[in-house]
């Protein structure tokens, strides 16, 4: 807040993300997956699985994890860390909801 590097960008309305699912947001060449969790918290990570670049937005949300749709790697949405036995990390983005509006910070 008030931090120059954390400029918030309007993305969409929370309602426009189906419950327990995700939407993708294009920022230039980067695609970001914005997840709406079961309890309406929102998380954002790069839409690219460290394994074979699976589109994470199409996976199944399990608690605060996302299961990659291609080969079921499990990735934690808070820190982007892949659950053992697999290894890797995905970039995460600050995201917030205010008055039903979703904001993202790059």
């Amino acid at each position: 807040m008030g931090n120059a590097t954390a400029a918030w960008i309007e993305v969409c309305k929370l309602d426009e993300i189906p419950p327990s699912q995700a939407r993708t947001v294009n920022a230039g060449d980067t695609v970001i997956a914005v997840f709406r969790l079961t309890d309406d918290r929102v998380k954002a990570i790069e839409n690219r699985c460290p394994h074979k670049h699976g589109p994470l937005a199409e996976g199944i949300i399990s608690g605060d994890d996302i299961l990659c749709p291609l080969h079921n790697w499990r990735i934690h949405l808070d820190d982007g860390v892949v659950a053992a036995p697999d290894e890797g990390c995905v970039k995460t983005y600050p995201v917030k909801v205010e008055d039903g509006q979703v904001f993202l910070s790059l």
Partner: peptide
């Protein structure tokens, strides 16, 4: 709403 994930969203880089 129900199928909104198909619609493209672009934001400034």
């Amino acid at each position: 709403n129900k199928f909104s994930e198909y619609k493209r969203i672009d934001i400034p880089v």
